[in-house]
């Protein structure tokens, strides 16, 4: 209770308290929506599983044993085994690491890139804007998956190249959002006031414009995560992403497709994992949108 009133204090006594209070309030708002909580729980579970994968999984991800090929789900093998006799449950658990890595790297590469390009473009307008947005539009005009496929094929198969290919296809959408937001901020008097204090354009963009774009960016990235996971799985399925024997979910589905009718579990189990995690990100993203919506944000 003391902690709570400290956090909700309307006249905080330090920078830290002010920031913590804001975070706490956002957290409280998020907790009000059960679906958001569910989404957050799924993501938290994903992260924990990835961290503790070797301890959670009963077997190693590459433990072949041809004597127990294609066993159906049972008490011993919760998700059955695949054509090389590997425990699918263990592979799905280890696969969380790959999924999490893809998601995190794509977010780390493409969101800041898009944010920066969009903010610079919107802030300076004129020629800078026209050139940057021209490039952005070229990328946007092509279907995402096709573009990712083209890049992945050009760069060669492999998980790193798949990540780069996906990142390249996702930033333009972020740049567009950031630009739109920047246009509304650029003419605000507080940016004029900052410039009058002697702040450089760089400082205005980094310290004044970007912080106001980030909330819509966080929402968008979270909602896009599902798409990113699906694209990564798609690339894996087509053999352009992670290479066997890596336990990448898409590649695992692909591995089971020749016996999908008789041994359905080989493809279905990693499919469930993909759906669950994608849904988790969608729920969380929806909740974040309700809470962080930039329109209500300015009043927060």
């Amino acid at each position: 209770m003391e902690m709570r009133s400290w956090l909700l204090d309307d006249s905080p006594a330090s920078r830290g308290q002010a920031a913590a209070g804001r975070a706490y309030r956002i957290g409280l708002d998020l907790m009000r929506n059960p679906l958001t909580v569910l989404g957050a729980a799924i993501i938290a579970l994903l992260v924990l599983t990835a961290i503790f994968a070797p301890w959670i999984a009963p077997e190693a991800w590459d433990g072949q044993n041809l004597e127990r090929r294609l066993l159906p789900p049972s008490a011993e093998h919760w998700m059955g085994t695949d054509q090389l006799g590997r425990d699918i449950f263990s592979r799905v658990i280890h696969g969380t690491r790959i999924t999490l890595m893809i998601v995190a790297l794509v977010a780390v590469i493409s969101a800041p890139l898009g944010l920066l390009i969009g903010a610079v473009s919107g802030y300076f307008s004129g020629w800078t804007d026209r050139i940057l947005m021209g490039v952005t539009d070229v990328f946007l005009s092509m279907p995402k998956l096709v573009l990712a496929l083209a890049f992945a094929a050009a760069l060669g198969p492999g998980i790193e190249n798949a990540i780069i290919a996906i990142a390249i296809t996702t930033w333009p959408a972020y740049a567009r959002i950031a630009r739109a937001e920047t246009l509304t901020i650029r003419n605000a008097e507080f940016t004029d006031a900052a410039r009058l204090l002697g702040a450089s354009h760089t400082r205005v963009i980094l310290r004044h414009v970007l912080p106001l774009c980030t909330s819509s960016m966080i929402i968008r990235v979270t909602l896009d995560m599902a798409g990113i996971i699906l694209t990564a799985a798609g690339l894996g399925f087509l053999g352009l992403g992670a290479q066997p024997p890596a336990p990448e979910w898409g590649a695992m589905i692909s591995g089971g497709r020749s016996f999908i009718f008789d041994q359905w579990w080989v493809s279905t189990m990693p499919g469930f994992a993909i759906i669950t995690v994608s849904l988790g990100f969608c729920f969380l993203g929806d909740g974040l949108r309700d809470v962080l919506d930039p329109k209500s944000e300015t009043k927060r």
Partner: peptide
């Protein structure tokens, strides 16, 4: 009212 450390203030 808004919350403050001294409780809610009107």
């Amino acid at each position: 009212s808004f919350p403050t450390p001294q409780g809610r203030v009107n």
